[in-house]
Amino acid sequence: MLLEYQVNGGDFTNAGSVSSNVKKMMRQLGVDSSVVKRTVVALYEAEVNIVAHAYRGVITVDLQPDKIYIKLADEGPGIADISQAMQEGYSTASVAVREMGFGAGMGLPNIKANSDILNVNSVVGKGTTVEITNNF
């Protein structure tokens, strides 16, 4: 089942609504709650990344009986050094964003820890695509 959600940069208020929807659907499928939790944490983190850094983004969710594939494609500044961004504590978030409790530099490492397969591609000045796959 294929679903698509739009995300707006800067809208922290609504960050998390995609995660809630996906969580409910995985539960309807009867997916083990530990996998649901991993997926929701990874997705939420990736969703907040778009809100914190990008102008806008599209989240595509492909839910299958045995796995979930999530693609988060944003239009934004992109990541210059992905391997650096994968390290815990690395953050480019502004002070304002950090004060809201986001941008602790745990984003990508946390997504990685909660994904079976993670692909990150980025073009500086254009945007970033994050692909998460979790098997049930």
């Binding site: 309807q28 997916v31 839910l63 049930f136």
Partner: peptide
């Protein structure tokens, strides 16, 4: 013990079909 009220079917493939139809 958890007792999820959301589960649509014990068979995940059937649950998937149901979810798609309901959607």
């Amino acid at each position: 013990q958890p007792r999820s009220m959301d589960k649509l079917d014990n068979d995940r493939a059937v649950a998937m079909q149901k979810m798609e139809k309901a959607f």
